[in-house]
């Protein structure tokens, strides 16, 4: 083979790509399209004005990273609810088991993936932060 041929072939590919649509996303000015089944930040579903979670402890039990803390309590109607619901996002491996385990469809994973923060404490998502945004 002529030693110049590979170089020409290479240049041809380069040239071709110059006219193709770029793959690189100009984040943050450009945003990715997140698939519906993406496993991002958790959210607690609401039912009327209350979190659906009944504090059954199945998600902390199933969680392989042991990063969910639930504490159950009894409300004025004697219903069980989670007085504490916390996820430590530093430890979460986004496996989605918690969502799968939940018997009442109380927890879901959203499309939010921008979780960077400055303090460790800010990675502990309390119940208030996880509550589904209305």
């Amino acid at each position: 083979m002529n030693p110049i041929t590979p170089i020409i072939n290479g240049m041809a590919i380069t040239l071709k790509h110059m006219f193709m649509k770029p793959v690189t996303l100009q984040y943050p000015t450009e945003r990715p399209k997140v698939a519906a089944r993406f496993r991002g930040l958790h959210a607690l579903n609401m039912y009327h004005d209350k979190a659906k979670c009944v504090a059954c402890y199945l998600c902390p039990t199933v969680c392989p990273a042991k990063c969910i803390t639930v504490e159950a309590a009894e409300d004025a109607n004697h219903d069980k609810y989670a007085s504490v619901y916390e996820i430590d996002m530093l430890r979460c491996i986004f496996c989605g088991y918690c969502v799968e385990a939940c018997p009442v469809d109380a927890v879901k994973m959203t499309e939010t993936f921008e979780l960077a923060n400055y303090h460790r404490q800010d990675f502990i998502y309390s119940k208030e932060r996880l509550l589904e945004k209305q």
């Binding site: 504090a55 059954c56 199945l58 069980k80 018997p103 009442v104």
Partner: peptide, 8 residues
């Protein structure tokens, strides 16, 4: 109601 039953 196993999710809310303490016997579960």
């Amino acid at each position: 109601d196993c999710p809310v039953c303490d016997k579960s």
